[in-house]
Write a protein that binds this DNA or RNA. Sequence first.
RNA 1: GCCUACGUAGCUCAGUCGGUAGAGCACUUCCUUGGUAAGGAAGAGGUCACCGGUUCAAAUCCGGUCGUAGGCUCCA
Length: 661
Amino acid sequence: MPTAPPQPLLHSFAAPRDCLRASQEFVMSDQPESPSSSLPQNFVQLVAGLEFQPLKAAEDEARAKRLYRLRHSAAHLMAEAVLQVFPDAKVATGPAIENGFYYDFDLPRPLTPEDLEDIEKRMKKAAKRANRFEITEIPIADARRRFEATNQTYKVEVIDKIAETQKPATVTLYRQGAFCDLCAGPHVHNTVRLKHFKLLRSSGAYWRGDATRPMLQRIYGTAWENQEDLDAYLNFLEEAKKRNHKRLGEQLDLFHFHQEAPGAAFWTPRGFIVFQSLLTYWRELNVKRGYKEIFNPMLYKKDLYIKSGHYTHYKEDMFIIHQEETEYCLKPMNCPDTFLFYTSKRRSFRELPLRIAEGGILHRNELAGALNGLFRVRQFMQDDAHIFVTPEQVESEIFAVLDIVREVYGLFGLTYGFTLSTRPEKFMGEADVWVQAESDLKAALDKGGLAYAIDEGGGAFYGPKIDIKIDDCLGRKWQCATIQLDFQQPLNFDMKYTASDNTPQRPIVIHRAVFGSIERFIGVLLEHTGGALPTWMSPVQAIIVPISDKVLDYAFLLCKQATDMGIRAEVDDRNEKMGYKIREAEMKKTPFMLVVGEKEAADGTVSLRTYRDGQQPTTPAAEVLATIVQRIQTREFDVTITPLRTFDVEDESAAAEADEY
RNA sequence: GCCUACGUAGCUCAGUCGGUAGAGCACUUCCUUGGUAAGGAAGAGGUCACCGGUUCAAAUCCGGUCGUAGGCUCCA
């Protein structure tokens, strides 16, 4: 049967207006309106050649610099206190970080929570002594000799690295009270400025982040300019804890973990509805955007992964099963088996772009210590797809995928950023092919007017990628969506299509996932919404609360009507008072609560209560049901997001300085 | 995998100096028939993560294993 020429799907769904709006936003943030446009002619000269920036940005930057200084100074103060307790401690590095500071130490024994209290008390005392921070500049060789003589071997190593990379003649030492440190500064003038800080926790940290180097003890602390900010930050940490998706998963009865299957979620009936609602949406999108879904096996002989390169480049992360003489692997990615689908028959250029989706269940052998609720699991489902394209189709397909990302994240009101990840150290293929792939991705991003960061060496071993990171309520970033360009696997799998001139050609593969891991995305969404999911995702969309069992018949009738209309509705027919039932429905964050008593039963109404807005006027039942159906069908994001105050004061220069000492 | 902490009822957590285990919620039964976030009573429920050691005696002290949390590292 001849294949119908593929529809040029791009024009049917591309949302030029949305693209334009997004690109304008990005452009606007980068290029503020020219100040000369509204100035009198004779003032144009005044501002010629000057760069202006919004006051707020300038103030934020000044504050960020002050906080950086404060926190870095607090780190020195902490080192002073630690040395009081452990005079033989070796100090490593102690930078200011986002929201606080840390310092790494090599100590004779592990720190206890009591130690932290003790150290914090000593810090407060030391701060009150009002010691000045003082600076001296000495030849680098002299500094090295001094630190070597005091057996501060980590500092010696830092100095050696500075000598090698920056080759300065001198370095600076800062001293306050009973502590002196190699440090580029700057610092506050006096320890009396350090008042509003708190030590948060201690943990292990490899020297230089290298697992082959010694494990040091790191103490984290936070420091602020005033008590109000400190309290607000500590409160933020408390609130963030309440929003933790593991806690919400328990409270809302969505999923569990069991030690018999570490790193794999067990979805409850309620939770699986949430999971399925995302999958249903994903499948609708696939149809709308011209994707076909396939369903492949989960277990493969290792030969597949030898061919794809995973066996060489990814074996550490794979679960491998030895069955008699044969070695099998649980699939860690969907790509290799999707490629088997592609090569299962001869392909024509008329089929391209061929968009193949697969929501495969993947297993990755993550390190035990890396597991973290739904955020880092060993088993997960990916809303994966592979697009097989001709070279001419690359840019428009990438652009179309970026448009899907915009649509999907827009649906959840999520903010996100792009990162272009380039060739890693371990890579397959030819370097110039990589250069081509990277420039194609750049072109698509630039064309969309999208701002992006570059992660040098962060690409997959088979190709460069655009990663999209979602911001969560804690200001953390989570990689969900990814778009990867692959020139390599078509070679490994000898993929071909017959071109219009009847010659065999090599397709290019675009890998893409938007949710990334369905599990992780649900985790992010739970924290983002505080567990109050939009109606279309809610396990129970409407709970009917009969006031007494005299109106049970009406309640069940309503429930049937609602169910017939496609609403997930339940009657709470337990022998409890309505206040109790409402409390339970509220705690489960049920979007619609339909309270019915004898009055409502008599005139076919419901007393409406919503999770978002509380008690509403009594309304005809049909009207309420119609509203709910509409919310579900349009997938309205009917949730009020109350973002936690973020304390994110990014300062690139501060971050760069923090790198070293 | 490494560092630190933790693991007591379905959930959240008490449990002192080593002396055979407790609360609230949830669950079951009964009473109660109610108007927008917890009505009352009774009952049932635990090999104190698991394995070993010390001890007359271990939830408690020691060792190991597994799991969890926060980091380090890695990554969707």
